[in-house]
C-alpha cells in the first residue's frame, strides 16, 4: 500500500479531524497532515506552501459547510491559484442534498463526493484509489 505523502483536511469539525487523523495514522497510510478550519485558512496555507517552493498535499478532504469561506468558495479560489502540481480533492460532507452532489460534478478538480459519516473502510478505499 503506497503511502500518501501528505493529506490536507479542510473541516471545522474537530471530531471529524480527530477521527480521520487516527484512522490514517493507525493504518500508516499518511503521516503528514495539514488541517485548516475553513476555506480561507486553507487558501492562505496552500499559497504559502507554493510560495516557499514546497509540494502541496496530494490529497485534500474538503468539507462544504464551514464558516468564513465554505467548500465551494474554496474550490473557486483554489482554481484561481492555477496550481501545476497534481492533487486530488474529495468533498466529504454531511450534506445529502442532490443539488450539492450535482454541483460537485461540475468541478473537474473534485474526484468524488463522500457523505459523512466516513468509515474506516470508506476512507481506506479512497486512499487506495488515490495510491
Amino acid at each position: 500500500m503506497t503511502q500518501i505523502d501528505s493529506t490536507c483536511l479542510i473541516d471545522d469539525d474537530p471530531i471529524f479531524v480527530f477521527a480521520v487523523k487516527r484512522i490514517l495514522k493507525s493504518s500508516h497510510l499518511s503521516e503528514n497532515f495539514s488541517v485548516y478550519n475553513n476555506g480561507k485558512e486553507a487558501i492562505i496555507g496552500l499559497k504559502q506552501i507554493i510560495d516557499s517552493g514546497k509540494t502541496i498535499p496530494n490529497l485534500i478532504l474538503l468539507d462544504l459547510n464551514m464558516p468564513i469561506m465554505d467548500g465551494w468558495q474554496f474550490l473557486d479560489e483554489f482554481i484561481k491559484l492555477k496550481i501545476s502540481q497534481k492533487t486530488t480533492i474529495y468533498i466529504v460532507s454531511s450534506s445529502i442534498d442532490p443539488a450539492d452532489f450535482n454541483k460537485a460534478k461540475t468541478y473537474e478538480q473534485v474526484s468524488d463526493f463522500i457523505v459523512k459519516p466516513i468509515t474506516r473502510e470508506s476512507l481506506l478505499e479512497i486512499m487506495q484509489i488515490k495510491a
Partner: peptide
C-alpha cells in the same frame, strides 16, 4: 436533519474508531 446528521455521523465514526483501536 442536516445539523443532526453531522453529529450522529461523528458519533458513529467515533464508535467505529473506538472498536478498531
Amino acid at each position: 436533519s442536516h445539523n443532526l446528521r453531522s453529529h450522529s455521523g461523528n458519533l458513529e465514526m467515533l464508535l467505529d474508531l473506538m472498536a478498531a483501536e
